[in-house]
Design a protein around this nucleic acid. Sequence first.
DNA 1: ATGATTTGACCTAA
DNA 2: TTAGGTCAAATCAT
Length: 264
Amino acid sequence: MAATSPEYSWCTKRKRVIKELVQGRDIATQLQDLLLLGKNNSLDHGVQELAMKICTSFSQSLSVLNSCVQIPGDDLGSGFSDQLNSQDSGESVNRSTLKGRRGCYKRRKTLDSRRSVSSKLEDGYSWRKYGQKGILNSKYPRCYFRCTYKHEQGCQALKQNEHKEESSDEQLFSDPLLDSEISWKDDVMGLKLSDKPPMFLSSEIGTNNHKDRVDTSGGYLCGSPNPYGIDVNMDMSLIRSLQFDNWDFHCDQIMSSGELQAGL
DNA sequence: ATGATTTGACCTAA
DNA sequence: TTAGGTCAAATCAT
C-alpha cells in the first residue's frame, strides 16, 4: 500500500494528464465554435483548420494515453504474464472452503483492477461495478454497473457490458475489454433520457442509419449532476478515436455535424 | 477510514 | 431447472 509506489505515481500522473488534455480539448472546441460563428473568409478558414487540428491532437493524445496501460519500469512481458498468471490466483483457493463464505478470496492484482475507475468519468458518469456473470458459451463475462450515486442521490442508472467472441486464439492477448458492447437500461427511474443511444457507430457513417442519432446531447444523462464537471456532450466531428478504458469509440473519418445530419 | 472490486450466494423469470 | 440479475461479505487501493 505504498502511496508513493511507481504504479500509484503513474496512475496519478496519468489521470492528471488526461484531465489536462480533456480541459485543453474542451477549450479548443469552444474556440472552434466561436470561430465557426465568425465570418467565413479565407483567413478564418485557416484559423478554423488550426483549431480543428488542435482538437484532433488533444483527442488523439487522449486516445494514445488511454490505450497505454503499461507501467513505466514494468516491462511488457512481466505485465502480461502477471495478468495471465493471475487468472487463476483467485480461483486457486479451494472452492469447497469458500462455500458459504461470500467474498472470501484472494483478490487478483491486475493492471485492470483500478483502471476502470477513470473510464467511468470519461462518459460523464461515475459507475460502480456491482456484479459479473459468465455468459453461456462465451469466454468473457457480462459486467453490471450502477451509478455511484445510487444511494446518495437516488440515481437508478444501470448499464452492463459484455465482450464479443474472439475469432481466433491469436487475439487471446489483446485487451478483451476493448470491442465490448454496452447496453443501457432505459427503463429506470431517475434517468433523463434522450431516448436515443449516446453514440452512433462508425460503420453507420455514410449511411442514413445514424441520422436520427446525431446530436444526442450526450445520450443518457444520469439523474445526478456530473460531479467532475466533464462535459458529456461530444462533438463527433472533432473526435476521431476516443478510447475509454473499457470501451473504444471510433469515428473513421472526420465529418462535421452538418455533414452527418445531411447523411453524407 | 473510506470506498471500490471481487465473486459466491441468492432471487426470480422463463 | 437454468440463466440472468442483484446482493453483500471479504478484500483491496488510496
